[in-house]
Design a protein around this nucleic acid. Sequence first.
DNA 1: ACGTAAAAA
Length: 681
Amino acid sequence: MPEVRGPPPAKRFRAGPGVPGNRGAMLPGGRRPLLGAEALERQRRSLPIFAARGPLLARLRSAECAILIGETGSGKTTQIPQYLYEAGLGRQGAIAVTQPRRVAAISLAARVSDEKRTELGKLVGYTVRFDDVTSEDTRIKFLTDGMLLREAISDALLRKYSFVILDEAHERTVHTDVLLGVVKAAQRRRKELGKPVLRVLVMSATMDVDLFSRYFDGAPVLYVEGRQHPIQVYYTKQPQSDYLHAALVSIFQIHQEAPPSQDILAFLTGQEEIEALCKACRDIARHLPDGCPPLLVLPLYASLPASQQLRVFQGAPKGSRKIVVSTNIAETSITIAGIKHVIDTGMVKAKKYNPESGLEVLAVQRVSKTQAWQRTGRAGREESGACYRLYTEDEFEQFDKMTVPEIQRCNLAGVLLQLLALRVPDVLGFDFVSKPSADRLQAAVEQLELLGALQRKKDEPPALTPTGRKMAAFPLEPKFAKTILLSPRFHCTEEILTIVSLLSVDSVLHNPPSRRDEVQAVRKKFVSSEGDHLTLLNVYRAFRNVGGSKEWCKENFVNSKNMLLAAEVRAQLRDICVKMSMPIESSRADTGNVRRCLAHGLFMNTAELQPDGTYVTVDTRQPVAIHPSSVLFHCKPACVAYNELLSTNKCYMRDLCVVDEDWLYDAAPDYFRRKMRAAPS
DNA sequence: ACGTAAAAA
């Protein structure tokens, strides 16, 4: 039982067991001032992992694959690559260290190159999308897992590397999951070909060790302790029917009882809820009794403009308390220093797959135990802390042990296309750590077949077509890659590149619910009656015309960070087109051609207006509605193409384009003949 | 008739 410091437990909570070890992500940690060589060495030696250095190296030398369980603060991610290098293990080929997130890859590389006293990009470097800071000399290379996967497309044996470290494997991102299979296959294939062995180290927090070990034929599991401060965990005595209300009450209980220097982090599920709770907090804070310190209330979620996100890192003015109300972005991606109290509603908004309807549903649901512990760990980063769980201990025991791996919840078309591009002999038989259901694999194969990316012959595994190979060159969802490939036929590649780029980053349109009227008024000038795609195109053109002015973005509720990212994506996609010798033309004022092209690329995602004013999809006759964020929300076009279906309260189509039914027949005659015959009309 | 988590290529 960890010791209890900090404020006394709130009355409505009951103390439960403390944190059993920790399941944290190793966090990037900012750049710190350079220490003297001796001090630096002392610091490195003081890390928990240092004591394990010798035995660890001995095990890693004898095993081709090992699993390492390292708790937060063990120093595993920064130290192990250096140990391996110092022991001469990274001489024949470089050491790759993968991360699920860009910022982590970048800051870890910076940190390790500091420790090695070398310039970033020499001995130690990193590769992430849009940014490659490596050279011939780079022996320790941090990269995103998605980036290593891209590299594998041109070199499935990962010849550059002698060692691959897959970090944060417990997060089970799609990329990590696929990479596990790719690395395993490369390891075996290299052995068959008599090439130098590829060593693999899977690093994870505790929960899924057995799974990884079994997957790698009983690979040895090594443990390293962490350095985490004690956190007292409290549960509610009674189940809470209204977690928002419970969160509000808890916030003010802590606020009235704990010293104001102690900051609070509360986990909620989404933007609207967070903004509402923030407003409630500010309202209540204005009417608190005398002597109660002021409260600085800050929302945090991914679509929040960067300038507002950065505010969570600043300390509250002396004498007042900071409370950050966040989505699960603060679970792993953003680390806030100085958090003493965590409030966990136990809820998260996440995609899940509904096998009955075959639809992906974005729903508020219970977190897993792993996730709850991850949230708890956010309270003990610098010193001891407390976590208030707004559910009972019995309820907690009912939570799923682990979050369902993403690969079992997402559309697999992109994954399969990538596997095919990797020349995996039989994609349906691919050795996944957690195999997705056969139904979903089959659905992905059919989707790719309709897009012309693969061919199925009797008794043979599906094979990539030349179109499919081209599609795989684009870092995009298959349907968008196909749309780009189709665009020369409609002389609108310039426009399609812009639209696809805008759609492949987080929304460039910022919609603060509190300022809805303002947003609508200012956005009017961009709105196209032809739909959201062309509206986005107008926004981008306006943005370019003002030279990407930040001021303009602010005035127009445009997220400048995402806009600049979209511009980078566009440049990358354009490069790929140029390399393929695609003609890049503009359709100029002819928006009809742009819509024709979209109709050809998105023909699987179309819906028709019914006599009663509702819509049904052409594909499965599923009733759908136009999402309120669409510029077509108040319109009733006869036929639309959409980017995606999102099932929340209703099944909504997001990002719509008005299309002509005839174009769809042109795009996929067989498909529509089949669909229309099935439909009563 | 009325609302979108996060992350990556």
